[in-house]
Design a protein around this nucleic acid. Structure first.
Length: 490
DNA sequence: CTAGGGTTAG
């Protein structure tokens, strides 16, 4: 199947001009907010739920006109509301207006704005935003989690050490928990022990969040037995009561390993302790069943949740159900469910769409995938990310639509979506399969240059190709390179 | 009385 030019043109940024509306924004729930016609960037295309955000903005306007001005507390509440709606750049804007009209912003207000910058992966800008207020432990915890979000682990460590060394603030349990989360994200799985010790030395008691964070991380790395050990330490020795989060993490770890007997044991334990499973617990269970291809049980549980009104499915649950349907190549049913969730008032998100888009691409239905991709961006106002593009590019590569692939890559650049290791790997692998080894090697060189270290997937694609080409010299050379790398890590 | 900590996709 050759992708039609028409479908490809649908994703070109200049197509968005079609959507430019008259300046009057109507009352429909999704309207185009701002639109910058000369840049043509998706990021400028802010679709938003006008109703709620508009309410907040109107209230803000009204507040700014009052004489005397309302207290900073009232403004802060509003700022927090907008932030909770995840309109981060909007919050920043409001903050700037507050400063301009002379609202005496304080550490509370500033911390919210710093959070906004951090959430937008602009931690650097957050840094310079202290504006004369003295940052406190909460401000620093926000900065730390911002750095963690951006994978800047070295700076996380540096800042944390600085806090203690220069006595900028005494880390509290939340800061330690944040640090543990960061260390678990990058370090080997035992590095958390050092932080637990430090907490102990400095007289900060770990709480249920501390243990849940570690347990969660261990479960993610399939080290469920270690997690269970820690669970015992927490409950039996430290006397910390587990909560639904702790149990959900353990259940997830056990589900992923197919240890269903123990899952049932956990559920029974929860019942005894009157800790009620919530939406996260149920989505964990559904996901576990989907992983094991137990599609009928998935359906049964899902229907039971709705019928007995145990839990109204949320976007994560629907997304998991859709994943289940896609796994069985039932793309049509998946799309039906996508429509149904929307009707039931549950908005699909980028995960939901990317599941179906990926499945369509894997089934070589890239045209349909592109249609959905456009629906996601244009109708739903959801910003695409690197995962969406990787599915589409992978599908296009498989079909040999190289022009469309480069078009997509250009589009990503326009949108400021940077390539990551998995998408580089798709390109390397595709070039290898196509027999254009030079291009594959060129991509790998770019990876190295950009600091996206080639991984086992990258090397496997190339090694396989070298062997197939009977290019033993190159294969051996690469093998040496890998060996050296492994030694350096140890 | 206003700021910080768990689930889903390549």
């Amino acid at each position: 199947m050759k992708i039609s030019k028409q479908a490809a043109s649908l994703v070109r940024p200049n197509q968005f001009k079609v959507l430019k509306l008259d300046s009057g924004i109507d009352s429909s729930p999704t309207s185009v907010g701002t639109f910058c016609s000369n840049s043509g960037s998706i990021r400028k295309l802010l679709f938003e739920e006008i109703t709620k955000l508009d309410d907040a903005l109107n209230m803000f306007d009204e507040m700014t006109q009052r004489q005397p001005l309302p207290s900073v507390v009232k403004f802060t509440r509003l700022l927090q509301a907008v932030t909770k709606m995840e309109h981060y750049s909007c919050s920043i804007d409001l903050f700037k207006q507050m400063v301009a009209i002379g609202v005496p912003v304080d550490v509370y207000t500033t911390t919210i704005v710093i959070k906004c910058f951090c959430q937008m992966s602009c931690t650097n800008e957050a840094y310079g935003f202290k504006r004369g207020v003295v940052p406190n432990v909460i401000t620093f915890s926000m900065l730390l989690s911002g750095l963690i979000l951006e994978d800047r682990i070295l700076e996380v460590e540096r800042l944390f050490k600085k806090l203690i060394r220069e006595e900028l603030c005494e880390p509290d349990v939340v800061v330690y928990n944040t640090m543990i989360k960061g260390i678990c994200k990058f370090g080997s799985n035992n590095t958390y022990i050092g932080l637990l010790r430090l907490m102990d030395e400095r007289g900060c008691k770990p709480n249920v969040f501390t243990y849940s964070t570690i347990i969660d991380s261990l479960c993610k790395d399939k080290m469920v037995d270690d997690a269970l050990k820690l669970f015992n330490e927490m409950t039996l020795h430290k006397g910390i009561l587990p909560n639904v989060v702790t149990y959900s993490s353990l259940i997830r770890g056990l589900c992923n390993l197919g240890r269903w007997d123990e899952v049932c044991k956990m559920l029974k334990e929860m019942e005894e302790k009157r800790i009620y499973p919530n939406a996260v617990t149920f989505s964990t269970l559904l996901n576990g069943l989907v992983i094991e291809d137990r599609i009928f049980e998935v359906e049964r549980l899902f229907k039971k949740l709705i019928r007995e009104e145990i839990c109204e499915p949320n976007v994560v649950m629907y997304s998991i159900m859709i994943k289940g349907l896609c796994k069985f190549s039932n793309n049509d049913a998946a799309i039906d469910l996508l429509r149904l969730m929307d009707e039931r008032g549950c908005k699909p998100n980028v995960f939901t769409y990317s599941t179906i888009i990926d499945s369509l691409c894997k089934d070589s239905m890239v045209d349909d995938a592109l249609k959905l991709f456009n629906e996601m961006i244009l109708d739903k106002g959801i910003l695409p990310n690197v995962v969406n593009y990787s599915s589409l590019i992978s599908g296009l590569c498989k079909l040999g639509c190289w022009d469309e692939v480069s078009k997509m890559l250009g589009e990503m650049e326009d949108e400021g979506i940077s390539l990551d290791v998995p998408i580089f790997n798709i390109l390397v692998d595709s070039f290898c399969k196509e027999g254009i080894v030079e291009d594959a090697e060129a991509v790998m060189n770019i990876m190295v240059k950009r600091g996206n270290d080639p991984d086992v997937v990258t090397y496997t694609s190339l090694l396989y190709r070298y062997c197939k080409n009977i290019n033993i010299t190159k294969a051996m050379h690469m093998f040496d390179e890998i060996t050296e790398k492994v030694w350096n890590r140890m």
